[in-house]
Amino acid sequence: MPTTTTTLTDRLVLAAPTQADLPALHALHADPAVWEHLPSGRHTEIAMTRSMLDRAEAGWRAHGLDIWTVRRRDDPEGALVGVGGCSVRAGVAWNVYYRLARDAWGHGYAQELVAAGRTAAARLRPELPVVAYLLEHNEGSRRAAERAGFQLVWRGPDAGNPDPAAVRLVYADRPLSPEALRVYRELT
């Protein structure tokens, strides 16, 4: 599948991750500050990050798109400020994911990343909806989804969350099929 692994936005360089990114990706995903809304998701072992990286590389091979590393265009050192993009989830939707370093929050990088992901996803598989899967108490992610034009399509318990009171929200760029809704309701 032909693919462009690097995308430029106004302020960001988005590039397919490589094994060389593993240390920086692990440092990001191991930082408790970026897991404020889901502490149980923090990567406590590098094997967790390696598994995420392996899935991303497989997604790039299979679909021509997956998560990108995120770096600022104006940073000559090219420090990682985050990761994110769109991955095909269970063949039913493009799933938006992003994780930004704490000091990168509040600068609009999530909006640039989501917009670039949606554009790339629509170019490759426009028949698939784009979905944002988030926790209800994560106000920043909810606002980002709404600013991106996503609509709330489901609200319910977060299967597998150690917090039994956690509520999951599913936002999408269009109505979801019953199969896609089932996939998202059952995610753990």
Rank of each mutant, 00 (worst) to 15 (best):
L28W: 09
P2R: 15
Q111V: 00
V83W: 13
A132V: 08
V81K: 03
E45Q: 12
E45L: 12
A93V: 02
A121S: 07
R89N: 07
A79T: 14
A24S: 11
A24L: 11
T18L: 11
G85F: 03
E77F: 03
W60V: 02
P175A: 03
Y98G: 03
A145D: 06
V114W: 11
E186H: 13
S177A: 15
L14M: 12
V167D: 08
L187D: 07
T188H: 13
P39Y: 10
E136T: 02
V81A: 01
E45V: 06
A166E: 07
G156M: 02
E45W: 05
A120M: 05
L53Y: 04
T69P: 01
D54E: 08
V167F: 05
Y184I: 08
G78I: 10
Q111I: 10
G59M: 05
V81Y: 07
A33I: 10
A115T: 14
E186L: 15
T6V: 14
Y184C: 13
G64Q: 05
F150S: 01
I46K: 05
E136R: 15
A27V: 12
R142N: 07
R125G: 00
H29Q: 14
T69A: 02
A159H: 13
N138G: 07
S141G: 08
I46A: 02
E77W: 03
R143S: 06
W68Q: 08
H63Y: 01
R147A: 10
A104H: 08
L65M: 07
D158K: 06
A56W: 12
H26Y: 09
P23L: 13
R61Q: 13
S141M: 00
R174S: 09
L38F: 13
A148F: 01
T119F: 04
Y98W: 12
A56V: 12
V34I: 13
E112D: 14
A148D: 05
P17D: 12
A58F: 06
A47W: 04
Y171A: 03
A122M: 01
A79R: 15
R42C: 05
V70I: 14
A159S: 11
A15Q: 15
A27H: 10
A132N: 09
T6C: 04
D158R: 00
E45C: 05
A30V: 11
G160A: 01
A104R: 11
T7Q: 07
W94N: 01
R55T: 07
S40T: 14
V167H: 05
R50V: 05
G140E: 09
Q19D: 15
Q151H: 12
S141R: 00
P175F: 06
D54T: 10
S87W: 01
Y97S: 10
A20M: 04
G82N: 02
L124S: 00
E45K: 13
D10M: 00
V130S: 11
P129I: 04
A15I: 10
R155M: 02
H107V: 05
A144M: 04
V81L: 12
Y97Q: 14
L25R: 10
L181V: 09
G106W: 09
D31M: 06
R71F: 07
L181P: 12
L14P: 04
A16T: 13
S177L: 09
E136G: 06
A121F: 00
E57M: 09
W35T: 10
Y98A: 07
D21M: 13
V131C: 06
R61Y: 00
R61D: 09
A145W: 05
L169F: 06
I67A: 11
Y184S: 11
P2Y: 11
A93G: 08
P126M: 06
L124C: 01
T6R: 15
V153G: 03
V183N: 09
V167P: 04
